[in-house]
Amino acid sequence: MNKNAFIISVLLAFFACFPVLFSNPYWIGVLNDIWLYAILGLSLNWIVGHTGLFNLGHAAYYAVGAYTAAILSTRYNIPILWLLPVAGAAAGLFALAVARPIIHLRGDYLAIVTIGVGEIVRIALENDIFGLTGGSNGIFGIPRPEIFDMRIRRPWQFYYLIGGFLLITIWFFYRLEQSRFGRALNYIKEDETAAEGSGINTAWYKLAAFVIGAVWAGMAGTLFAAKMTIISPGSFNFWESVLIFAIVILGGAGSIPGVILGAFLLVGLPEFFRNFADARMLFFGAAMVLMMIFRNKGLLPPLARKYAGVPRVKGGDA
């Protein structure tokens, strides 16, 4: 029927068949990383892109989810996929405790505090907090996930597991975005005082957005732990947060296709330029500056929501 639906169907069909058409485990592995970062990007997008809250410590919630899943699965032999909601809840509760007192801070202040929280979490993990996290070596021997007695261990199996979760993620955030919740967050991003003055409980929505983003990052952490079977604090440092942040900003803050494109470019593209691997961050940095100057809404900016019956836009207005 319309062009977008056609493009989406073609892309879906292509990626659904990808492991069958190209049984190259390396490229399937790259796509697995892209899916994972797309999930992380979409979770941060809810906080940064929609609500305009500067969270530069998203890796902290990712880490809390990954470690919760890793600790519970290695110590109590709980199947790791059962831990998805548990790890999400742990990350969400942590975010709730952290964000409640700081969420009212503005722009740069919030940025610096979230960086601080991210660092505190990483340092805590490195110092083997509560004797649970294994210090800088991390946790290993995380059991492989199982679905209907099938043990997930090969890249193509993870491809469908993580890809499937990405589809759920897209659906979830798309529905939220199109609801009064999504609108409320956008009002807050545009003008918080006006939003509050129009009857929106800004404090509650900011907190809710933050916690939902964190819950989703925590679930992504579970998938990461299951995929790697080893996790260590090094995977959750500041640069991880910056990478997720850059995916959102460069792809298009507030735009689901934008964030997915961002994940493709920032995670996938460097695989083509392995000789320049060291310069990867250099390009990201330059791209962020240039993007803000020339196209500050990102590569694929969000489209306006459509409402049934609203008169068609006809040119400008004086």
Partner: peptide, 20 residues
């Protein structure tokens, strides 16, 4: 203090929010 980058109808929907 409008939500400048949002549509006119969405600006008004902000007012409806507290009745939903």
């Amino acid at each position: 203090r409008l939500f400048q980058n949002m549509s006119v109808v969405e600006n008004v929907l902000a007012g409806c929010h507290c009745r939903m």
